[in-house]
Design a protein around this nucleic acid. Structure first.
Lengths: 210, 210
DNA sequence: GATACTAGTGAACGCGCGTTCACTCAACTC
DNA sequence: GAGTTGAGTGAACGCGCGTTCACTAGTATC
């Protein structure tokens, strides 16, 4: 275009790149990332198709950039939560509420991870699986510091961590698929998540004596 | 074609219809059902694209037929298992092994359900979600007849049923994604599934006293 | 054995796709 | 302020897509 540019060329390029990513994320909410075409994303971001190549080599590369960004968001939230001693104290009740809050706040990010884990192109799927594994390991590190767990085997702790992540994942899915206009469902999901977590922890507490 | 037909026109038509469904199921293992084209499926089934319309109005309709067939398989297996008293007796250990066996035997069917639940076209997704809900309700009916559970509220039983289905679903996913040439992983998955189920049941047993 | 039926054929269509390339012109460098 | 750089343009390409339609030939009906 012959329009003047607002803040320097580097900044503008970064803005366009982010516009492409945000547009793809938004569109993927409706139809799944693998169904998006390069042309659709470019046009919705206000670009001509060939301009796409100034920012990504392919849709796959854009997908990987999205995975990275989404898990960055997730990891930041978890690390912030870990710093709050009250959260560790009441880990069950807290995690249910945090989860629902977090998912609501970054709905598109969570939806992307939830949906594309099994679906996206092979590289996208693999990247997500890898990030989720990292996530389980991180949670295991937190859990192992809790009283009564220090003595467990690494394998057992990993198993419980996996169970927790799986449940968080499933509940995140519920929130993601929750209709916009039904905030009453939210309370139910929180309650459900809370009870399920408690259920796991109860089994968990009786694990050694079984 | 000018080739003679083997067993009557009706039978032959049914065979072709099933060939289309099987081909689509198989191809969807590699790239996801939503990524399949009518032409690909037709060609792989040995048909010209326009012949597809003699059997289905669209790929969506084929997808719905597949959902129905897959859950039919699933439901039959569950009903058979329920008739075996030994299975009810040792429901935890049995269900872990049954699950892995069943998934291995009907890998494509399970893979389809697991993958397309979040991904397929909107009608396919909705159909799968509906069938899974039915499945949870059916399991709740089985559970409520177990000793010590009869007195629970319907809501609680449904919750536990949902937790079970969620775990079966997640473990089915592990088996589906298991590489063909690593049968050693299978034993690990069975063991993991067994322990997780036991974990849930333990929490479950302590539920009332919490 | 003539007649109706229908699963499957093959050519044609218009369309959106990914990719390429020569081009423009504002932002940057010196 | 002349020269370079590079984000974005727009036309063109070949391709696979879903869908249509007139057709062929084996099967079923009477």
């Amino acid at each position: 275009m012959s329009e003047p540019v607002v803040g320097g060329r580097k900044l503008q390029k970064e803005r366009t790149r982010e516009a492409l990513m945000n547009t793809a994320l938004e569109l993927s909410l409706q139809k799944g990332f693998a169904q998006l075409s390069l042309r659709q994303v470019s046009q919705a971001a206000g670009l001509v198709p060939s301009a796409f190549y100034r920012h990504f080599e392919s849709m796959d590369e854009l997908g990987l950039a999205l995975v990275e960004r989404c898990f960055g968001t997730l990891r930041t939230m978890i690390r912030d939560a870990q710093r709050d001693p009250e959260v560790i104290e009441h880990i069950i009740d807290a995690s249910a509420e945090i989860l629902v809050e977090a998912v609501k706040a970054s709905k598109a990010d969570f939806a992307f991870v939830v949906r594309e884990r099994l679906t996206g192109s092979e590289p996208v799927r693999e990247a997500i699986r890898h990030e989720l594994d990292l996530f389980v390991s991180e949670l295991a590190v937190v859990l192992v510091r809790l009283p009564n767990i220090e003595s467990w085997t690494t394998e057992d702790v990993q198993m419980v961590a996996r169970l927790f992540v799986r449940n968080m994942h499933a509940n995140a899915e519920l929130v993601v698929e929750m209709p916009e206009d039904r905030p009453d469902l939210e309370a139910k999901i929180v309650e459900l998540a809370r009870r399920e977590m408690r259920l796991i922890v109860l089994g968990f507490a009786n694990w050694r004596s079984s």
